[in-house]
Amino acid sequence: MVEKILQKYSHAGRDSLIPILQEIQDSIGYLSEESIEMLSTHLNLASSKIYGLATFYNQFRFKAKGKCHIQVCHGTACHLLGAVTIIEQIEKQLLVKVGQTTRNGNFSLEVVSCMGACAHSPVIQVNGVFRSHLTEATFKELLEELIETYRTVNK
């Protein structure tokens, strides 16, 4: 898949670096070591330069997403309504750190600046599905549900 993207950018220079990285991430879900290496050869640019740039931006991830990918909104409204607690609880209960994926590949956690759904805050996305107006009770329920679902997935 990465080859195809690179073919499209056959005469590109380092100024196309960000769009290429974005396309790679869109197609394989993250920036793998191999894809960075391939891009490095393609653009004749040291891989460290590419990695250095990519780590500057929040949008790029370097690990595959989990089967259950959770995005937590940390915009102003969500922050005021307890986004920090939500992040802490997810980290604690699902044993996953922000920007990381659990070893069994079940959960991954990402914090995003604002989802633009402030009226529904606090808001999180689970595999692209919005869960809004979270309260202590609904959030607790949601976590239990996730743990239960992916425990059976693992079996």
Partner: peptide
Amino acid sequence: VSTLEFTGRGSKTHVGTTM
């Protein structure tokens, strides 16, 4: 050789290698 490069951003910036 370009092994080293700044990685990360802001107060978390550090000199690192690829990955």
